[in-house]
Amino acid sequence: MRYAMAIDTKKCVGCSDCVVACQTENNVPIGYCRDWVVEATSGTYPDLSMELRSERCNHCTNAPCVRCCPTEASHIVEGGIVLVDPDQCIGCKACIASCPYDARFVHPEGYVDKCTFCIHKVEKGEDPACVEVCPTKCMYFGDTDDPNSDISKLLKKRKWKTLIPEAGTEPNIYYLI
């Protein structure tokens, strides 16, 4: 099983609903966030194009944050979800430095926090909070190991990219372009 997310940049409007939904669902303290929105514009007026996309931890297959963690606080669970166990985290921040996506932060309580793919919902068969709320329905969550899952089909049908592939992390968030 390989959980992954696909985000359709053709539909994302950059509204940040995914960010607030994550904040309320997961009690992410005000001033912090596990996901965010990127707006990339290129060209000159009036020949312009713009990509909007929602970003978060990529739950990398080859996760440097897990490799560099001295305590096993950062670990990978069933389905490839990368998690941090606050009770094992010493707050050395090596994982923060190792993540090319700046997806992690130090929770005010001291441990390192980041996107959990809403494992508490996923385990119940629900979608993550950000996916569930997105008003443009541009986010898809599922198992890429299952060729019949919606996400697998979508990735077969559409052109996609991942972020900073050069970093060799093998991200599991796909951006449909």
Binding site: C15, S16, D17, V19, A21, T24, E132, V133, P135, K137
Partner: peptide, 9 residues
Amino acid sequence: GRLCPRGTG
């Protein structure tokens, strides 16, 4: 079933 960011917030 989906509120907008302002509704969620």
